[in-house]
């Protein structure tokens, strides 16, 4: 616990002390990138400055309300949730963008997720995983995700010719109307004001009703604690100004993370530049994980 605090402070100071980020998201820049991406590129060149700056910008933005609050000496409302160093959930709204055409199926996200969140290494428990879709000439879709793609994929030959193929990272969709929260009998699953759906390990009775209610298979029962588990958008990271582990390690920036309601946010740009789809739209869960270049076979 102690160690944790030290490192967290270190990381926070880092984000705060670095010099002011230059404004990076101007529309002209975006447009030029758009044309590039039409050529089915993995976006590796999209600008290294952007990566660093975006990370800084989002972390800096995130810390501002907290700092202002401290300066004005408002009367603290005991029922207003303030976490760590002044992170106020009500000032944020998180979303993730996934560009399917950029994903190379390396599975680094699934691997990092297990390390960051102490997810059991057995191949039955995943907070995030990557699926491979191979659509054959006869229209059939062959889908697989061996060990959640942590060891990437093997090229096994199929009988039919593939007409299109791609990888789809999956995770909890942090629904606006989460069915899992709706059905939890005791209030152990809940949605914080910033839109992230969390599970209270100590309060969960392990009834598995939320696992049944999740349309995305994003939850599992932890074999040791026997309580429900799921992706938290790496909540312990985002409250400190870091991005989720899967986003941090994605080598092709197929995963984008940011604020949904702030203009200078990578997710807003992502929504502007791409045609966006969500999973199982008809269920009206209103996911906050958005997919660019989503294929009809994905579900």
């Amino acid at each position: 616990m102690m160690n944790n605090k030290i490192i967290n402070n270190k990381i926070n100071n880092k984000s705060l002390n670095t010099e002011k980020p230059e404004p990076i998201i101007d529309s002209a820049g975006c447009d030029s990138v758009r044309y590039d991406s039409e050529h089915n590129d993995a976006g590796c060149d999209a600008g290294r400055r952007n990566f660093v700056n975006c990370a800084l910008a989002s972390s800096a933005l995130m810390m501002v309300p907290g700092m202002l609050g401290a300066g004005e000496e408002e009367k603290p409302d005991p029922n207003e949730l303030v976490l760590g160093d002044g992170y106020r959930p009500k000032d944020h709204k998180w979303g993730m963008g996934i560009d399917i055409s950029k994903c190379i199926g390396c599975g680094r996200c699934a691997d990092a997720c297990k390390s960051e969140n102490d997810v059991p290494r057995e191949p039955f428990y995943f907070r995030t995983w990557v699926e491979r879709y191979r659509i054959l000439e006869n229209g059939e879709a062959v889908v697989d995700s061996p060990n959640g793609a942590i060891d990437s994929f093997d090229e096994d030959k199929l009988d039919e010719r593939i007409i299109r193929s791609f990888f789809v990272p999956k995770l909890c969709n942090q629904c606006e109307h989460p069915p899992c929260v709706q059905v939890c009998p005791v209030g152990a699953s809940y949605r914080v004001e910033d839109g992230v759906v969390l599970v209270d390990r100590d309060y969960c009775v392990g009834c598995s009703y939320c696992l049944q209610a999740c349309p995305y298979g994003a939850r599992f029962l932890h074999p040791e604690t026997r309580t429900a588990e799921k992706c938290t958008f790496c909540y312990h990271r985002i409250v400190k100004g870091l991005v989720p582990a899967c986003v941090e390690v994605c080598p092709t920036q197929a995963r984008i993370f940011g604020e949904m309601e702030k203009k200078s946010s990578p997710i807003i740009r992502f929504m502007r530049m791409n045609n966006i789809g969500v999973l199982k739209h008809s269920l009206n869960t209103e996911p906050k994980v958005f997919y660019a270049n989503l294929d009809k076979e994905v579900r």
């Binding site: 990381i11 880092k14 005991p78 949730l81 976490l83 909540y235 312990h236 390690v249």
Partner: peptide, 28 residues
């Protein structure tokens, strides 16, 4: 306290240990 859940649990989750420091820190 904050909603239909145990308030302390948000703090517990927010205080979990960070394992990936992030590239900005490495660069330093």
């Amino acid at each position: 306290q904050y909603g239909n859940y145990r308030g302390g649990s948000v703090h517990e989750i927010a205080n979990l240990e960070v394992k990936y420091a992030g590239q900005i820190v490495c660069v330093d």
